[in-house]
Design a protein around this nucleic acid. Structure first.
Lengths: 207, 207
DNA sequence: TAGATTGTTAATCGATTAACAATC
DNA sequence: TAGATTGTTAATCGATTAACAATC
């Protein structure tokens, strides 16, 4: 069974809210409370939880701790997955620093760059290696996911290396659209498009 | 008439491809070529162009220059819009440096932080001001869009300031979900969710 | 019981794709 | 003409929302 993309995204966000709730000592949360904390409705929340087969014990809200565990069993890989970051400019450093320690089952284990000032140093808490060692590193260390934060013109060549080395998933932050085989899951985020989209819809908001 | 969100996103991306084509001296492009350069189909491309009312002159591909102009007339604001970045850590610097000069009709005119080491200096090509001057700056300089790249726990307070100061659109890069009035267009990008989503779908890809 | 909440099916909405006539 | 391409409607697919019975 595969969950809808949007449901997976929301589950990831619900989980963070739930962890927050737990820290505040809340043991239960209603669907309408959860909905209020995200941009969604109580029905949506209940439907998402229905899809993962979780139900409240006594219709008095969802058990925070239980729900965290259920979401974990659905979206986390039991043994954890290893991630690398390719390109340690400002964006690569931001991602690495931001992500490190956030998710126990998903860790950035190495970063790569071609700049000799970065290679062999620890940056944002993670060791940086030269790009030429990347393919070997991926196969030897069973890396599943790569985040590309390199200059756009290098993205195609890097992707080719990643695919050959057997990477399973790619998150592409460059503005270059990539093509990968079906065996690789690709997600792209394009900052420029995001901002242009806002500019378009801002126009439409009256004013 | 308002275009679908997804169409606006693709138009933004088509435009960049078209500008690239122009630089390479190509005068026309077929819908299937455009589709091949993005993750879409020729039908999708033609449908998007239908929605903006552009058609090829003689069924021999679209005129690159004309199409750039038409897309510009649809998604750009005629006078341009001003953007600020709030939070100049690694992510704020990455966004600012990456974006500056990319889109003539959309420019980052100031950045804000609370760190005295950053305030009053030019960072990533743009002057950084203290957060306490932000609201005044927004109203005095007719700022339309704010990008939030501050620590997550500050996001709610910053958003409140932005909304009060009359911002029109917000791009939120923090993991804190925000709530804004209907008069403000909000777009959120959550890196952690992106990576968790990849982790989930990587599992499903056999292996 | 009455009110609030949940779980689930059916209806709706939005976006993509199939089908095809028209044009070069 | 034949083949390729475009422009557009209708059908399909996926996701959200409405409706409502069941439960506490």
């Amino acid at each position: 069974m595969t969950l809808p993309e949007k449901t997976v995204e929301r589950l990831s966000q619900y989980r963070r809210t739930l962890i927050e709730c737990l820290a505040q000592g809340k043991t239960h949360i209603y669907s309408h409370q959860m909905a209020g904390l995200h941009h969604t409705t109580a029905v949506q929340v209940r439907r998402d939880l229905m899809l993962i087969g979780y139900s409240s014990v006594n219709k008095k809200g969802y058990n925070v701790r239980e729900l965290i565990d259920v979401i974990e069993s659905i979206i986390d890989h039991p043994k954890g997955l290893k991630v690398i970051v390719v390109g340690m400019g400002n964006l690569g450093r931001a991602i690495t620093a931001y992500f490190t320690g956030k998710r126990p089952k998903l860790s950035i284990v190495a970063t790569f760059d071609v700049d000799e000032n970065k290679v062999d140093r620890v940056i944002a808490g993670v060791k940086c290696y030269h790009l030429r060692n990347m393919q070997q590193f991926i196969s030897e260390n069973d890396i599943s996911i790569a985040i590309i934060s390199s200059p756009p013109e290098t993205a195609v060549a890097i992707t080719e290396m990643l695919v050959l080395a057997g990477i399973k998933g790619i998150l592409n932050f460059t503005t270059t659209p990539l093509n990968v085989p079906h065996s690789v899951y690709l997600e792209e985020y394009d900052m420029i498009t995001s901002i242009e989209k806002i500019a378009y819809f801002v126009k439409g908001l009256g004013d």
